[in-house]
Design a protein around this nucleic acid. Structure first.
Lengths: 279, 279
DNA sequence: CGCTGTCATACCCGGCCGGTATCACCGCGC
DNA sequence: GCGCGGTGATACCGGCCGGGTATGACAGCG
């Protein structure tokens, strides 16, 4: 199975339409039909049911679609990682959630800068939960992520900092005067629906609160009194004067971790991990 | 990057010799040289340092070698899984260590057989630690594995049974008369070196004991009085009369788990997992 | 200084990838 | 019922590229 065939198959399987898929691929329809037939012949499996008026995936086709997506992503990541390994042995890209854990990032970068032989670090600021994609993509070599919020499957990690969570509220709100809160206190504040974060797959669970894409948007919404949010304590570093932070006594703790692709053999990443382990 | 190019590159990177790699691939040397040059040109990266007398990998080459191996394995697995999905919706292959956990396997199969809509199960008997490869390969849909011995990374699991470990000894040995032992008792028995299991990567750590590949071999070696072994308690089901099993009071417990590829969407696997969860 | 072994280059051929033209077929509307 | 539009499949052709053979350039070695 060549990646070209997989690319073609994914296009057809997603469009369920040969002509549209061909257009998307930038080729004509007949060669595409032929390529898929050839793939089916070589596998000895019918992947698509052509029904004169509609194209549908067979069970085997669904399996191959899942697998092919993974393979194509891995191939693109491999090319990127290879290119980056060539262009810059002494340079690495660290993905981090824009705005979060500023103090920790500062400490990590400062400590790393004092290391002899240390690689230079490019900081790549991401939206919520984008770090995992960047790491898988090969666009980043390492990332700061948070357990249990971020999807850490497939990565190796080093714990950096465990901290309490706090509720971030509009400064004028009655709850903001309290010295401590519980999750129950927040679950049903009538005028302040809890902000909704994207899940691991990028979708949002239904609910009344606004969908959050990045922290500056969240900050604005809280300052406007439209929502409240639960974040780790170090978020205090970016609070506005219109914000108030109140500790949550019963929320799970959050651990910020340094994550990198499992089995990475990059010396630059290893150096950063060593620095992080000493923090 | 086409899989053909990756296949060629892996061959050259492993052999570090174009002619031998070409022979292994079943093609002539010049086309291979050209293919690698083309790959390098397309990536804009030199992967191999040709030094008139020797070929060595560059840093980028090492990165691509790791990535390419993963991609090629994934591609082969994808083909196998697709073929199997086509040939048998109602059939799945369960990999298990030959000889181990016989009682548990029996219970699982019996319970599954009574389910309506249940897939038929082909049991695939593996040597030590081979199940992980079978799962990754796509040669098996699920496997019985043991924590903490087997490499479970990348799989989803369902715990089935946690049990104590026991020492298996030749029946006539002095230690066999004891009612309980500790790991310290076993660490330095002069005439009975402890059997060595393969590690996750298939290699063995150095030591005096014999290298174990499967349980029948181990059984024979113990019966001959050449070694002793530490196994989970359910191993008692296959003991010979020439064997004795003595509980270990301080060894970590072993959990037998049902494992399957993460994100599997197979209905047949889901059915088996449901059965297992009810055990 | 040839000999050997290495990888690169030159050149040729056949197959396959992609394009255009067309077919076979279905659903739809008049 | 009969064009008509739109679907994927087929037929055919041309050019590119992957593969082969022959050979070159060069280093190490006896």
């Amino acid at each position: 199975m060549e990646t070209r065939e997989l690319r073609y198959f994914v296009a057809v399987a997603e469009e369920l339409h040969f002509s549209r898929a061909a257009e998307r691929l930038g080729i004509a329809q007949p060669p595409l039909s032929r390529a898929i037939q050839q793939l089916e012949r070589r596998l000895g499996v019918t992947l698509l049911e052509r029904d004169r008026r509609s194209v549908t995936l067979t069970g085997a086709g669904r399996v191959l679609l899942d697998e092919a997506r993974v393979i194509l992503d891995a191939t693109a990541a491999a090319a990127r990682r290879t290119r980056r390994a060539a262009s810059s042995t002494k340079r690495l890209t660290l993905a981090t959630k824009a705005g979060s854990n500023h103090e920790l990032l500062r400490k990590l970068l400062d400590a790393h800068a004092t290391e002899p032989e240390a690689a230079e670090i490019d900081v790549l600021l991401c939206g919520m939960g984008e770090q995992a994609r960047m790491l898988r993509d090969g666009r980043a070599d390492a990332a700061l992520m948070q357990r249990p919020f971020d999807a850490l499957a497939g990565f190796d990690t080093e714990d950096l900092l465990t901290e309490q969570q706090v509720a971030i509220l509009p400064a004028g709100h009655p709850l903001a005067a309290r010295t401590a809160l519980t999750l129950a206190d927040l679950s049903d504040v009538p005028d302040l629906p809890v902000a909704r974060w994207p899940r691991h797959d990028g979708t949002y669970e239904p609910g009344p609160g606004p969908e959050i894409h990045d922290l500056s948007q969240l900050a604005q919404l809280i300052a406007l009194g439209h929502t409240l949010a639960v974040l780790c304590a170090s978020s205090r570093s970016w609070l506005w004067s219109a914000h108030a932070a109140v500790p949550l006594t019963d929320a799970s703790h959050v651990t910020t971790v340094l994550a990198w692709p499992a089995h990475s053999r990059s010396r630059a990443v290893a150096g950063l991990v060593r620095t992080a382990a000493r923090l």
